[in-house]
Computed example of a mutant assay.
Amino acid sequence: MLPDVGQESRRSPPNHSTKAGPTPVPVPSTHPLYMLYTSGSTSRPKAVTRDTGGYLTALRWAAEKVFGVRAGDVFWTDSHPGWVMGHSFTVYGALVTGATTVVYEGSPVDTPDPSAFPRIIAEYGVSVLFTTPMTLRRIRAASPEDRPFGSGGSPLRAVFLASERVEPELMDWTGPFFGCPVVDNWWQTETGWPIASNCLGLGLLPVKPGSVARPLPGYRVEILDEDGRPLPPGEQGHVTIPLPLPPGCLTTLWNDDERFAETYLKNFPGHYDTSDAGHLDEDGYLSRAAPTTSILMYSLVDRLWRNAKKAAGIVFCSAGLSKGVPVTDMAEWLGHRAPTSPTRPTSTSCPTPPTVSGP
C-alpha cells in the first residue's frame, strides 16, 4: 500500500546521498534487461528477451504520449510483474517518467472486496488506471454502486484496457462507472508496449467500437493474406508489422535465435508475424479477430458444461483463485451464461478428485 504522502513529496523524493548505496554499473543500450516467458498458444515457453536502452526509450514515450502520464502523477497498472503489463508500466514505465506507481498485494477485486478498487483510486488520487477487461467484468458483476466516487467525482483522467478484446457494452459501462474516458489498446509480451492505441497524451481520436484505434509511431501494421499479399481496407487477414521493429520490442528469444526467426519472421519474410488476425478500415483503424485461445477456452467450457450433469462436483482450481469454483460459475466468470449452477462446494480448498476405474 502506498504511504499517505503529499504531491510535493511525490515530486521531490528524499535525499539519501549521505547513505552508502549501490553503485550504478554502465551497460550498453543493447544489454539484456530481463527475460519474460510467454507460451501463447504453444506448449513450449518462449523467453522473450528485452534490451535496456530501446525499451526504456519506448516506455518513456508511451507513458507520456499514449497514457498521458506526467511526472508527479499516480499511475496504477493493475498487473503484477509476472505479466508484461506489470513489467512495462507498474515498474519501468511509471518510474522512468517520474510518476508514482501503485503496487497492490492480492486482487483488488476481492481483497477484501470490490470496493477496494475505487477506494484506492480515490484515496491515492490515481490519475490513470491500466487494467484488463476481465477485471472490469468481475467489478461490474460484484459492485453494488453504479457511481462509486460520490459527489467528489473520480480523480481519473482515463482508464486503459489491454490483454484481450473488449466488448463495446463493457466500454459503455466502464466510462460512467469511473467517470472518465475509456481507451482500448493492443500489444503483446513480445512488443513490450502498445502496437495500436488511442493516445491520451496526443489527443484522443474518435472512438470506433471494436477497434483499438491506429498503430502508434514506430509500428506500420499491414494485413496480409495467406500468400503474403497486402489486403485492402476492411478485409480480414494476418496482422503483421514490417521490419524493423521499433525500440522496446523483443530482440530475440534467450539462447534460441533459430526459434525466434522460425516463430516470428519465417511466415511472412520482411515482416513480424503477430499470430493475430484482423483488419484495417479506410481510416487506418485496427480491429482484431477473437484469438484462437479464447475460442478454445469457450469450447472447453461448453464441453465441461455438457459433462457437468454427470459430475456436478467438478471444480476449477488455480493459483489465481482462493477456492474451488463450480464449472458453471467459471463459465459465467468467462462471460458464458450456463444453465442453473450445481451446488457450490462447501470446502474452501480444491477437493481430492475421485478415483476413476476403467480406461
Results as ranks from 00 to 15, higher is better:
residue 60 R to W: 06
residue 258 E to L: 12
residue 300 L to N: 13
residue 273 D to Y: 15
residue 81 P to N: 05
residue 262 E to F: 04
residue 61 W to K: 15
residue 201 G to I: 08
residue 44 R to P: 04
residue 359 P to N: 08
residue 207 V to N: 06
residue 249 C to H: 13
residue 46 K to F: 11
residue 205 L to C: 11
residue 105 E to M: 04
residue 195 I to P: 02
residue 98 G to H: 07
residue 107 S to I: 00
residue 196 A to W: 00
residue 283 D to H: 06
residue 332 E to K: 12
residue 113 D to L: 01
residue 328 T to S: 15
residue 313 G to H: 15
residue 334 L to F: 14
residue 196 A to P: 00
residue 111 T to Q: 10
residue 235 E to N: 06
residue 7 Q to K: 12
residue 27 V to M: 13
residue 100 T to P: 00
residue 23 T to C: 05
residue 343 T to M: 14
residue 192 G to T: 13
residue 225 D to M: 05
residue 142 A to W: 06
residue 264 Y to R: 14
residue 101 T to W: 02
residue 177 F to E: 10
residue 145 E to W: 01
residue 3 P to K: 11
residue 77 T to F: 03
residue 120 I to G: 01
residue 223 I to T: 04
residue 41 S to T: 12
residue 143 S to G: 08
residue 6 G to L: 04
residue 94 A to G: 08
residue 14 P to A: 09
residue 320 G to P: 00
residue 122 A to H: 05
residue 94 A to P: 02
residue 248 G to P: 07
residue 268 F to H: 10
residue 174 T to L: 01
residue 290 A to Y: 11
residue 272 Y to W: 15
residue 205 L to E: 15
residue 36 L to F: 04
residue 27 V to T: 09
residue 119 R to C: 04
residue 348 T to G: 01
residue 275 S to K: 14
residue 241 I to Q: 04
residue 177 F to K: 08
residue 166 V to H: 01
residue 60 R to L: 09
residue 296 L to S: 14
residue 347 S to Q: 10
residue 244 P to C: 12
residue 309 K to P: 03
residue 76 W to E: 05
residue 286 L to K: 01
residue 70 R to N: 11
residue 23 T to E: 08
residue 110 D to A: 06
residue 273 D to P: 01
residue 252 T to D: 15
residue 108 P to W: 06
residue 73 D to L: 04
residue 305 W to M: 12
residue 121 I to W: 00
residue 21 G to L: 05
residue 203 G to N: 09
residue 303 R to M: 12
residue 101 T to E: 09
residue 191 T to F: 11
residue 215 P to W: 02
residue 332 E to I: 08
residue 233 P to A: 10
residue 67 F to H: 12
residue 223 I to M: 11
residue 143 S to D: 12
residue 20 A to C: 10
residue 349 S to E: 07
residue 268 F to R: 07
residue 94 A to E: 05
residue 80 H to Y: 07
residue 121 I to M: 02
residue 113 D to Y: 00
residue 34 Y to I: 07
residue 84 V to R: 04
residue 129 L to K: 03
residue 258 E to H: 13
residue 124 Y to H: 13
residue 22 P to M: 13
residue 338 A to R: 14
residue 314 I to L: 15
residue 358 G to F: 09
residue 13 P to W: 02
residue 273 D to N: 15
residue 39 S to L: 07
residue 18 T to C: 13
residue 218 G to E: 11
residue 28 P to S: 08
residue 282 E to W: 05
residue 337 R to H: 14
residue 47 A to C: 05
residue 60 R to D: 10
residue 221 V to P: 10
residue 339 P to A: 15
residue 297 M to L: 14
residue 28 P to D: 09
residue 316 F to S: 13
residue 328 T to F: 15
residue 105 E to G: 02
residue 135 T to W: 09
residue 337 R to K: 11
residue 45 P to D: 01
residue 150 G to W: 06
residue 125 G to N: 01
residue 116 A to W: 00
residue 38 T to M: 03
residue 162 A to S: 10
residue 203 G to Q: 07
residue 216 L to E: 00
residue 106 G to R: 04
residue 91 V to T: 11
residue 202 L to P: 07
residue 18 T to Q: 14
residue 169 E to Q: 03
residue 311 A to S: 14
residue 97 T to Q: 11
residue 253 L to I: 14
residue 356 V to D: 06
residue 111 T to G: 09
residue 230 P to M: 08
residue 304 L to C: 09
residue 138 R to H: 10
residue 350 C to A: 01
residue 22 P to W: 13
residue 195 I to D: 03
residue 255 N to W: 08
